[in-house]
Amino acid sequence: MHKPHVTVAAIVTCQNKFLLVKERDKHTGEICYNQPAGHLEAHETVSEAASRELYEETGLTLSPSHLVGIYNLHATNGVHYMRFSFAFSCAEQLPPSPIDSDIISAHWFSLDAIKELPLRSPLVLKCIEDHLAGHAYPLSLIYQ
């Protein structure tokens, strides 16, 4: 039976910048950039998973304001991902301090700078563009 990997991503914005993490792709070994993101764990909701991943990968404790979208991706590594992307915002660009040892660093980037980075997946930019286009669905859309 086929089962997609359920993942979550945190789209964090502040003063027209987006928070991305620098990491090494486990399949290619290449350095790349991603939203704070990861897999859904047992006994947590997808929004709780997004907040947990944000904390583990940046040290920031924030709550999502809304769902940006649900994305279906058959990745080049052969894995099928179902990604839930959530919007987070903060009043100031807090300095990130990653806790997860897989994260090399975390930084704030403008949209133009992000377009020049090696991204983990095409969903990184797609989720940001959807957020900027006003895609915003209430958290209550997901029965949790």
Rank of each mutant, 00 (worst) to 15 (best):
S101E: 14
H39P: 02
K17Q: 14
T28G: 11
M82H: 02
C32F: 02
F84M: 02
G29L: 09
C32D: 11
H39D: 12
D25A: 14
Y55G: 04
E57W: 02
P64T: 02
C90Q: 13
N16K: 14
L62C: 07
R83Y: 00
T61D: 12
V79C: 02
E92P: 00
P64R: 01
L94T: 12
K22N: 15
V79N: 06
Q93L: 06
E44P: 03
A49K: 02
T28L: 12
T28E: 11
A87V: 00
T45N: 04
A75H: 14
I70G: 05
H43W: 11
G69A: 08
V21Q: 15
S97Q: 15
S63C: 00
Y33P: 07
E56D: 10
I31F: 15
F84R: 01
G69N: 08
Q15Y: 00
E41G: 04
L60I: 04
L62M: 08
Q35A: 12
R83V: 13
I99N: 10
L62I: 07
T76H: 11
V46T: 13
D102K: 15
G59L: 02
A42M: 11
Y33M: 09
F18W: 14
N72D: 15
A75L: 04
L62G: 05
N72H: 15
Y81E: 03
R24C: 12
E53P: 01
T76P: 04
K17F: 07
D102P: 01
F84N: 02
E53S: 06
T45S: 15
N72M: 09
E48G: 07
P98K: 04
A87C: 06
H39E: 13
N72F: 11
E23A: 13
S65I: 04
F88V: 06
V21W: 07
Q15P: 00
Q93K: 12
E48Q: 15
D100I: 10
D100W: 10
L20R: 05
A91H: 07
T61G: 06
A87Q: 07
A37K: 06
S89P: 00
N16D: 15
G69M: 08
N34I: 01
H74K: 11
I99W: 03
A37P: 01
Y81C: 03
H39Y: 09
S47H: 08
P36F: 05
L60V: 00
Y33H: 14
T76W: 09
H27R: 12
L62R: 08
R83N: 10
L54T: 03
Y55T: 09
M82R: 05
